[in-house]
Amino acid sequence: MTPYLRSANVGNGHLALDDVKQMDFTPEERQRFRLQRGDVLVSEGSASHHAVGMASAWNEELRGDVCFQNTLLRYRSVPGVSDIGFALQWCRWAFESGAFRDAASGTNILHIGSTRARAMQVLLPPLRTQRRIVDVMAAVDEHVRSLTTEVENLAGVRAVHLASTYREFSETTPAIRLGDVLTEVKRPVVVEPSALYKQIGIRSHGRGVFTKEPVTGEGLGSKKVYWVEPGDLVINIVFAWEGAVAIVPTGVHGHCASHRFPTYQRADGGDVDFFRYYFSTQDGLSLLGDCSPGGAGRNRTLNRTRLLDSPVYLPEPAIQLRVIAEFRALEAALTALKGELNRLRSFRSVLLEALLNRDIEIPESYDALLEKVA
């Protein structure tokens, strides 16, 4: 059995190797599909327009022979023509600029295809220029990796601290009924057919609220909708088990949501953020899952009565406020770090395109530095 990589293993500039499949390859197949250091793998097809063409290099991260599946395209540099790292940078540009997407074809699933891939045009600079581009981009990529690690580490610290904090409450605080401190708030909308209505949705995994394009009352049809207000705790009852819980932010005014997005406020005057954080812990997610019977997906609808009848552990108000302040500070730091990472990634894309298009030229004097480092 030989391990092989498939589309699921290839991200934009990185490989996900925690789930590598194996299969039998004949000696001829192994020879044809075996990867070499520096090979660039490109996701050949995807149902998502944002995923087709994602590219990353193989650098022998796993020992022994590793092959690839035909759901991937393999690019390999040509000695004397292209630098070993240039193919990766060009493929990443082709993904980020949409060139791979534009070359792809298909209705439900886009496919690049080897024929269309070979037909794509490349503005190929001289080898010395390629090496300068590769070296500069390698330095930027290292910074991206370093900042990505910082984001992942801080997110890990936050998750562990959340889990241990709320687990401690369950061990030191008497249980109370959730419905005694959290109450559902309904603000029915009287729908007018010609009026415009702005709706919200809730992302899974605690990723917050998003707003939708306005629709007319006629477009709402027979759907019952309710006003939401900043500070409401909102749950998507279809994907509660997946952590679709959020607080309506202060900037969202005059929006509504369907009956699938019930809103809650504290009955005791406390801050609902305490429960938003709780529902992001494994214990909180388990409670939402236990209250969402069914198989999977849309068959798992939250039983709101069961949820409000469930036991929770609520410390004294002063402790709640301290915990909320701590996690808001961690959340703000994590948001700022993610923003810095996103800006760096955007800078990387702009810089790469400018280098490939020769809008920015790296001076020849840079070659002396490369030789010195080598």
Rank of each mutant, 00 (worst) to 15 (best):
A336C: 09
H253F: 10
S222M: 05
A16C: 01
G11L: 06
V252Y: 10
T165V: 07
T301I: 14
Y313C: 03
L5I: 01
D83M: 08
T335Y: 08
F33M: 04
R101P: 03
M23G: 09
D273E: 14
D135Q: 13
R266Y: 10
V151A: 00
A325P: 08
E28F: 05
L334T: 03
L35E: 09
A368V: 11
V66I: 11
S164E: 15
G53W: 06
R37M: 08
Q199D: 09
G289D: 11
G295H: 11
L72P: 02
E96Y: 08
E331Q: 12
K21V: 00
A175I: 03
T216I: 11
L369R: 10
P125E: 03
R128E: 15
Y75T: 03
S280T: 15
Y75E: 06
I362M: 05
E28C: 03
V225F: 07
V52G: 06
D309Q: 03
K372P: 01
Y264V: 05
Q31V: 11
E152K: 08
A159W: 02
C91W: 05
F33A: 10
E168D: 12
R343E: 15
Y226S: 09
M120I: 10
V248L: 10
R260F: 13
N236R: 00
V225C: 02
F275L: 15
E61G: 15
G297D: 07
R37Q: 03
D309S: 02
Q22P: 00
L110V: 03
W93F: 12
F239D: 13
S77N: 13
R276P: 15
H253C: 10
H14S: 11
T148P: 07
V81L: 10
V189S: 12
S258W: 06
A16W: 04
L178E: 07
L123S: 14
L124W: 04
Q36R: 15
G206D: 09
P79D: 07
A318H: 13
L220I: 04
H161E: 12
K223P: 02
I324Y: 00
A296H: 07
A163N: 13
H50C: 02
A329I: 01
L285Y: 08
A57T: 10
P214F: 09
R6E: 03
A94F: 11
G284T: 15
N70P: 10
A55Y: 00
V136Y: 00
R131C: 15
A163W: 05
E242W: 01
R74A: 05
V190C: 08
L127V: 14
V10P: 05
R298C: 02
L314P: 06
M137W: 07
F25R: 09
A368M: 11
S105V: 12
L178W: 09
T211M: 14
R298K: 04
R118W: 07
S286T: 15
N299M: 14
M23K: 15
G295K: 08
N108H: 11
I235A: 06
C291Y: 03
F275S: 02
H253N: 12
